[in-house]
Simulated scan of single mutants.
Amino acid sequence: MTIRITCINKDNGYHENPNLAISHLGWINEQTRETGKNTRLEIYDWIKYKNGYAYVKDTFGNEAKVITAETYNGTKYLKTEADNSTKNNLLSLPEC
């Protein structure tokens, strides 16, 4: 299954890595029109262990693949692969 991440929710507090502030991600399967909202860790596990594919699309239609990452102390988070944009693709999404 492939999903497009459409929005995010962030928790409060200081985060050395701003991607760790993301608590939930809203998504849509553009083929079936199914939508949902899952925690950062649920999406992380789905991508890493179930070979799920997620991406972010900007206003110009450019897509950036969402990938898994871990901090030096093992905290799991999501980010996008490097692309032509200098902005943070996930953190630029609207709140759900």
Rank of each mutant, 00 (worst) to 15 (best):
Tyr14Phe: 15
Asn88Asp: 15
Thr59Glu: 12
Asn12Leu: 09
Ile47Ala: 02
Asp58Leu: 08
Asn73Met: 12
Thr2Ile: 06
Glu30Pro: 00
Ser85Ala: 14
Glu63Val: 12
Ile22Pro: 00
Arg40Gln: 15
Leu78Cys: 10
Asn9Phe: 00
Tyr53Asp: 15
Ala82Arg: 15
Lys57Phe: 01
Thr6Asp: 09
Thr39Ala: 03
Lys48Ala: 13
Cys7Ile: 00
Glu30Tyr: 09
Glu81Cys: 03
Leu41Met: 05
Ile22Ala: 07
Leu20Pro: 04
Ala54Pro: 05
Thr80Leu: 03
Lys57His: 01
Asn88Glu: 15
Tyr14Val: 13
Glu95Cys: 04
Glu63Leu: 12
Ala54Tyr: 01
Glu70Val: 15
Asn17Arg: 07
Tyr49Trp: 15
Asn62Thr: 13
Lys48Glu: 15
Tyr14Asn: 14
Glu42Lys: 13
Asn62Ala: 08
Thr6Ala: 08
Thr2Phe: 04
Asn12Gly: 07
Ile67His: 11
Thr86His: 10
Gly52Arg: 12
Glu95Arg: 12
His15Ala: 06
Asn12Phe: 08
Asn29Asp: 15
Asn88Phe: 05
His24Phe: 11
Asp83Gly: 15
Ser23Arg: 14
Asn73Gly: 11
Arg33Gln: 10
Thr35Cys: 05
Asn88His: 13
Thr75Trp: 07
Thr59Ser: 10
Ile43Cys: 03
Lys57Pro: 00
